[in-house]
Amino acid sequence: MKERSIKRTIAEIIAWFVALVVFILPFLFMLLNSLKDRRGANKLALTLPETFEWGNYSKVLTENNFQVLRAFKNSFLLMILSVAVLVIFGAMAGYVLQRRSSKVTAFASTLLMIGLMIPASILPTIWVLQALHIYQTLFAMVMIEAALNFPFTIMLFRGFMDTIPRELEEAAMIDGCNKGQIFYKVVFPLLKPVTSTVIILNAVTIFNDFTNPLYFWPGTQNTTVQLTLYTYLGQYSSSYNMLFADVILITIPMLVLFLIFNKKIIDGMVAGAVKG
């Protein structure tokens, strides 16, 4: 027995070593280098900075006429609006899809299945946006993020509806609630656990999205945080301190989210992945 526990401890120490080297080191490396001056950072060494250049961070935020700050504003706006659309309309759709089974709901579910698997058709989407005269607008970007994340979101809501008894809705109806009230006053509050999963998953996906803003929201005023990273990669390819400072700044919101909701996020990701 004793030998086994020693073996286990050794395995655990090795696991820690591997986890630190493989998963922590890359972030530590960026953090340290983001605080160096340009010459120091370009050596790409894993050493403490000689002097801590905290100014790199304010420089990143104010550079190019506050481009990164504007990008943060855009990214948060996009994230909040898209998540709101996804939660409200997604919950409504998931509710009816689970409660009714008919040709209409079967067809709707097939469409969602296609949406889960098939990648977006990019240029034809731009064509549609131009036809509607909304290309390069925040509104269009919200619609795109919503459309691409609806399949997953609706599936999650539909799956969770299974656990809510119909009797509640019937009771509410007898009490005189109309269809809308039944949903918003009775059903929607009961969806809270899956709603928080949906919020977290979509917030992370949309905040980290690069491809869709790249195609559908071009223009210097519209830049999102991930796009600034890409711009920096070209602009500051020989100033790794600035590049890494931008990376760290952009990762902080996700880190904060993770530290607060650690378990919730992991559980949510699993629920999401398994349902999908």
Partner: peptide, 25 residues
């Protein structure tokens, strides 16, 4: 009590911005 209208907002967005582009592609 489970009106199809509840499907409309999500599916209008999904169809206009995903399914239609897929078909015309």
């Amino acid at each position: 009590i489970y009106s199809y209208w509840f499907l409309v907002p999500a599916f209008v967005i999904f169809i206009v911005f995903f399914i239609v582009p897929m078909v015309i592609s």
